[in-house]
């Protein structure tokens, strides 16, 4: 099986979970080619070769510095024709999801979306994915060629740099026309770690209510010492303590870090749907009966306003940060 992997870039920088998609494709065996689309992304194309892709297609164009569904879909369809790939794989970021859906619908082939596992059975992909918000697992296969799948961020190890090189085929951008004009971009704060890519997340909930500003300041300080992303429960977002983009849960982001520290979060079903597959869960909550303790590996029953700064002090001392 020959797999084409979409390597997503934004303003010239690679979106890191793309390397996980490449890693997964390499583990499937067979030939693995990468497709890099963006602007000033020749270095990313070279890196795809260094991480084990046997060939790289590069479309470098000022109009493609940011993802555009119309342009990128036309590009992928053109490269799939050129490469005769049997499968197309992308990371299930918002853009990867949209791209796979557009290519799949246009070609009349199914998409195995948001997989946790992916393998090849009798020349076809077989993906395992959660449905019903993490409450059911199911195996999925799709008809048609190319076989298309998206991989949930952090579901696979990134392809390591092994120092190989691969021929880079520079393709002309397709003649498609963009219909969506980007007028302004408000970037994430410098140093802000993406929730879906984070290996550690420190989250705050309703428990910060007595002083939300101080509560999230303490949570941010702990996150900074641990190199973690900051998250929040729906209750904290709905109360206006922190913007929606930080929400973890059923109507927010689904995350799967190695370590999830829930501070003042009760652990409602809708929150568990977003973080229930974290490797280690730590609960810090005043209420010993809070449901979060029934899914947590470790816990401290206490006031987050005292426990979180104590944890920050301890981590700073022990980790020399």
């Amino acid at each position: 099986m020959k797999t084409l992997v979409f390597i997503e870039t934004e303003s010239g920088a690679v979106v890191s979970s793309s390397w996980e998609a490449l890693g997964k494709a390499l583990s499937l065996g067979g030939e693995v080619e990468a497709l890099v689309i963006g602007h000033q992304v020749a270095a990313v194309a070279a890196e795809a070769g260094a991480r084990g892709a046997t060939g790289v297609y590069l479309i470098d164009d000022p109009g493609r510095a940011l993802f555009d569904l119309d342009l990128y879909t036309a590009d992928v369809k053109a490269v799939l024709t050129e490469s005769h790939a049997d499968a197309f794989l992308a990371s299930h970021t918002g853009n990867g999801r949209d791209l796979a859906a557009a290519v799949g619908f246009d070609l009349g082939v199914g998409v195995i979306a948001d997989c946790l596992e992916l393998k090849v059975v009798d020349g076809r992909l077989l993906g395992t994915r959660p449905i019903y918000s993490g409450n059911i697992l199911v195996d999925v296969q799709v008809d048609g060629r190319p076989q298309i799948a998206t991989l949930r961020p952090r579901a696979a190890a990134p392809a390591p740099v092994i120092g190989t090189t691969a021929p880079v085929v520079t393709m002309a951008p397709t003649a498609a026309t963009s219909r969506v004009a980007v007028k302004a971009v408000e970037r994430a704060e410098a140093g802000e770690i993406s929730l879906t890519d984070a290996s550690i997340i420190v989250s705050g909930g309703r428990g910060v209510a007595k002083d939300p500003e101080l509560g999230f300041k303490l949570i941010r300080e702990l996150a900074q010492v641990l190199g973690a992303a900051v998250g929040a429960s729906r209750a904290a977002v709905d109360a206006g303590f922190i913007p929606y983009k930080y929400q973890v849960g059923q109507t927010g982001k689904v995350v799967r870090p190695d370590l999830y520290i829930a501070c003042g979060i009760s652990g409602a079903v809708q929150h568990l749907a977003g973080m229930g597959s974290s490797k280690i869960i730590v609960a810090i909550n005043k209420d010993a009966e809070a449901p979060i303790f029934s899914v947590a590996n470790y816990g401290i029953v206490g006031d987050l306003f005292e426990i979180v700064p104590a944890l920050t002090r301890a981590a700073r001392a022990r980790l020399n940060r």
Partner: peptide, 9 residues
């Protein structure tokens, strides 16, 4: 909302 960024389009 595009990842952690916000685009006006």
């Amino acid at each position: 909302i595009v990842g952690q960024a916000r685009h006006t389009v």
